[in-house]
Design a protein around this nucleic acid. Sequence first.
DNA 1: ATTATATAACACCATTTGGTTTCGTGTAAA
DNA 2: TTTACACGAAACCAAATGGTGTTATATAAT
Lengths: 105, 105
Amino acid sequence: MTAVKHDVFQAIADPTRRAVLQLLSQKQLTISEITAHFPISRTAIAKHLGILSEARLVSGEKVGREKIYHLHPEPLTELKQWLAYFEQFWENKLSILKHVVEDDE
Amino acid sequence: MTAVKHDVFQAIADPTRRAVLQLLSQKQLTISEITAHFPISRTAIAKHLGILSEARLVSGEKVGREKIYHLHPEPLTELKQWLAYFEQFWENKLSILKHVVEDDE
DNA sequence: ATTATATAACACCATTTGGTTTCGTGTAAA
DNA sequence: TTTACACGAAACCAAATGGTGTTATATAAT
């Protein structure tokens, strides 16, 4: 499924994948355990995990007959950095407001 | 083009759309001006602007025969908040390290 | 009044996405 | 040694995505 690389932006675009990340942030889980939280098939979850793996947001290790996935949040720094650039265009509005208030006193 | 709603996560998933946001952060631009920066058709750019508009990241006002688009970065707060949750799972590693160093002194 | 421009509105297309079901295989439990 | 289980791989599908080109319309410039 999808030989081309998925980046972190695409990986988090899907709500199911975001929910999977949320789950894995609490506790490492097998594919079946993750599937139990969603109304879709195990195969579909496995595909989502594949996309998250391509984006290096999770990794899975085989243990016996099951595969345990755990969160790898580091690639989110790319997202954070991208966001940081845009913050100057709206969080600044707060500091401008602050100045207005300060000028008022 | 896509009657269903696009959220901010989907909106920023595409690299062209991220580049458009970047452009609009510098200066408001017409559709044609934006198109000049990309190797794709004006129609394609207009569709991307439609998706960005659905996510409330941009808005366009008709001025004469052209339509001027400007950035509306506020919806990115949703992304920022989502990210904030995950930061505890990796930025913490720095503070743990910090403790180790502090314990060393 | 005519012509050129900027965009909107369509119709169309190939590929990707998000899902399914089926079948095969390795591992654990009876 | 059967049987049950967790997963991988494959084939398939409908809808969405990211593009194209054509045509129509309103506005600006000659």
